[in-house]
Structures are given as C-alpha cells and as structure tokens.
Amino acid sequence: MRFKMLFAAVLSAALLPSGAHAQVTRIKSNPQAIILDAAKVGAGAEMLYVSGQLPSPVDPAKPMADVKSVEEMGDTKTQTISALGKIKKILETQGYKMSDTIKLSLFLAPDPKTGRMDFAGANEGFKTFFGTAETPVTVARSTFQVAALVGPYYLIEIEAIAAKPAA
C-alpha cells in the first residue's frame, strides 16, 4: 500500500507542468521594517546565487591598484550603492531583476574613522534599491561586522540570492 501511495505521488508530481508550483513568498510581519522576516521559495523556482561583490572606486576610471584611501572608495552608503549596482548588473545579465532578490548577506568592515561598522550608512544605500518605485519589494537580510575585507579600503561586501519561476 505504501508503495502505491508513493508511486501515485511521484507520478502526480511528474505530470504537473514544471512551473506549476513555482512561487516566491515574502514574509514580513512588520510593515515598517526595511527587511523581510523570511522568503519561501516553492518547487519549480529557478535560483541564482551571486558571489560577494565589492564596491568600485568613486572615480570609475581609477584602477583599484591606485586607490590609497577610504575616501577614494566612498563612505559605507556610497560603497553599498556601488556593490548593489554590480549585483543588479549580474542579475540582469542572467535574466533577473532586483525584485527577484530574496536574500542579501552584508559584510561590513569597521570604518577607520569610528572603528565600527556603519550600519546606518549600509541601510541608506540599501534603501536606494529596495522599497523604491522600481523595486517596491524588500529582501531577507543578514548583516555581519567583520574584522576586515579583502582590501584595506573596502567597507562592505554583499552576497545575493535571487529566485523566480522557472522559464
């Protein structure tokens, strides 16, 4: 009997169109919060995992090898906008939009001026991409203070996960 039930369940799943149950559910208990409590990805969804992205210098013509100060990279808000801009470009090359992003991990290095991560600056940069007219949704998110990033002038690195119904 168990075998028949299992066989019927597997057969039923195999006969459904591949995207039939593909969905992303965003869970947010506090409407005022800028991040989600969670995101649930249903069967049949296509997912994209974006490696950590570092910001670029404020002057796009300046090679990283020539950067000699945090000021040349910008404050945490500026660096957050830069890193999220890179993520947006990666998503777009793969057929995704920022609104398909469901999870971000932010790694913040201490600002040399304060010795602490600039959480408020990261949030200000974040708000230029999420909860906007272009991308009204938000994401689940974690933020970590780290001792340092790969280079001495980086204040933030951001990883992303995006999900959408399979094509």
Rank of each mutant, 00 (worst) to 15 (best):
Q79T: 09
P31M: 03
P31E: 09
L106A: 06
A148Y: 09
P63N: 11
F144A: 08
L36R: 00
V146Y: 04
Q79W: 13
L84K: 02
M47P: 02
F3Y: 14
F144S: 08
F126M: 04
P136F: 13
P57D: 14
P55I: 07
L16R: 04
L54Y: 15
S69D: 11
G52E: 07
K97V: 10
S56F: 12
G115D: 03
V137N: 10
K97W: 09
M98T: 11
Y154F: 15
L48E: 12
A160R: 00
T101N: 09
G74R: 09
A43V: 10
Y153E: 06
S18Y: 09
A14D: 00
F7C: 06
S82I: 15
S99P: 01
K62P: 05
T143A: 12
T80S: 04
P60C: 05
V139Y: 08
A9I: 12
Y153I: 05
L48K: 07
K62G: 09
P55H: 05
L108N: 02
L106Y: 04
A162D: 14
E159V: 12
G115P: 02
N30C: 05
Q79D: 14
A133P: 00
K86G: 15
A109G: 01
F129W: 06
A162P: 12
A22E: 08
P112R: 00
A9M: 13
F144C: 01
G44W: 09
D111E: 10
K164I: 10
L108E: 08
S99K: 06
I27M: 05
P112S: 04
L48Q: 12
A14P: 00
L16W: 08
R116Q: 09
S142V: 11
